[in-house]
């Protein structure tokens, strides 16, 4: 039980993600999450504005059920399977973030500087999260997949577009982390 309650090491978690990919394919579906963002647009009536969204979302009802599972899984793990939520970060990481003005680095999963309720009601705080989300939604659909669809499914099935996409993920991530963070925070 101690093993379950402690953070899971990469060599336990990575293979479990491969098992989840296996279950998707075994049950006749491809592994990927970001297509659901389009499905949600369709459900909200986006088909009236653009033919791109004129699809039958009921064909993807299984994926929406899976999304509900993702939320429930987070709730279960957070409330019943975690002894502590402190992240054991590299001291260099803590120092770098402290220099950017972050406090209590790693004591929660998400920094209060971005995700606390006091922060998201400010114009800057709300804008940062909304823009970050916009980049995620637009980028994954343009690229044709996210971490699950490209980095895991695409790379493991040796697809060239996925390698290009993952290189792109890293270019974007490095620009943000190394160049833009000092300007934003």
């Amino acid at each position: 039980m101690d093993f379950i309650l402690a953070p899971w090491p990469w060599y336990f978690s990575g293979p479990l993600i491969a098992l989840i990919l296996f279950l998707f394919f075994y049950y006749g579906k491809n592994f990927g999450i970001s297509t659901n963002l389009e499905t949600m647009c369709t459900m909200a009536g986006a088909g009236k504005v653009s033919d791109y969204f004129k699809k039958d979302w009921k064909e993807r009802d299984w994926a929406l059920v899976m999304i509900i599972g993702l939320i429930i899984g987070g709730f279960i793990a957070s409330n019943f399977l975690s002894a502590s939520k402190t992240i054991n970060l590299n001291t260099d990481t803590i120092e770098d973030l402290t220099n950017l003005g972050f406090e209590n680095v790693g004591t929660t999963y998400m920094p209060n500087e971005l995700f606390s309720l006091e922060n998201i009601v400010t114009f800057k705080g709300f804008s940062i999260l909304l823009i970050a989300g916009f980049l995620i939604g637009f980028g994954t659909r343009y690229a044709g997949g996210c971490t699950s669809g490209h980095a895991i499914t695409g790379l493991s099935s040796l697809q060239v577009p996925s390698l290009v996409a993952v290189i792109g993920f890293f270019i974007g991530g490095l620009i943000m982390t190394w160049i833009l963070f000092p300007l934003i925070f």
Partner: peptide
Amino acid sequence: TLVGGIIFGLGWS
């Protein structure tokens, strides 16, 4: 894929 990937990477990070 490259440009979409870069845009996603900016948001992901």
